[in-house]
Amino acid sequence: MVDNVRDTVSLYLLRLTWLLALSMDKEKRDLAALSQAAGLADNSGVAEGAFPAPSTYQPDSRFVVNNEALLPDIREFLGLWERTFNTHAPDRLVALYTDDAMLHGTSSAKLYIGAKEIGTYFHGSATVKMDVWHSVVLAHNVSLVVGSYVFSQLWKGHQVTTPARFTFVLRRQDGEWKIVHHHSSATPA
């Protein structure tokens, strides 16, 4: 079961990587190198010679963890997401997601597809506090953010905290970051 889930997630990430790069020639090479370096790509279905060999390819300098040029933008967006989540106003939170976004939330096994459906997920009384996170540019106007946050809420008169980890794929649309993909899961004990 675990191998099947891991294979499915790897295939999903590979497909996401290829979809993001379809119309971007230079970004396509950068993403292919990143996918190969992460062990996610075997270039199945890709024409021979379409991408340079990983040993000879030098990725663009933008493709570094915590790219200094984007850190303020990403930090600002994560702060906005946290503040908006804590208002308990799903319509305001959904505005931070693209219309075609996908969400695998912490408290549900369901995959929510589309901003309207994602809005039905955010109905609780928990608050969230961002913790450690890292980001990497995947393509022009597309970034991956991976980190952790802590959910808190009252349950039977006691404050309960749930440490969790998250992955956001962000895309800049009309000058603003929006979430294309959001995955969240409780941090294993």
Rank of each mutant, 00 (worst) to 15 (best):
S23C: 12
F168K: 00
M102Q: 13
V132E: 13
L11H: 06
H158T: 07
N66H: 04
R6K: 12
L22Y: 02
G157L: 04
G157F: 05
R172L: 00
T106V: 14
A186R: 10
P54W: 02
T120C: 08
P72R: 06
S107D: 15
P54Y: 09
P72L: 09
P59S: 04
A126N: 10
G105V: 13
P72W: 03
V5K: 15
Y12I: 13
T127I: 04
T87W: 05
S135P: 06
F151H: 04
T161V: 08
E48F: 08
A101N: 04
A189N: 14
H182S: 12
V128L: 09
T127Q: 04
L111G: 12
E117R: 11
G39L: 04
T106S: 07
A89D: 14
D99V: 02
T106Q: 08
S148V: 05
P90I: 02
L11V: 06
F168P: 00
H158R: 10
T167V: 07
G114V: 05
T187K: 15
G175E: 03
Y112K: 01
L34A: 05
P188H: 03
A37T: 12
A89F: 11
S35W: 00
Q36K: 05
P54H: 10
N66P: 01
L19A: 14
S135D: 11
H104V: 15
G175N: 11
F85M: 11
W155Q: 15
L40E: 00
H104L: 15
V180P: 00
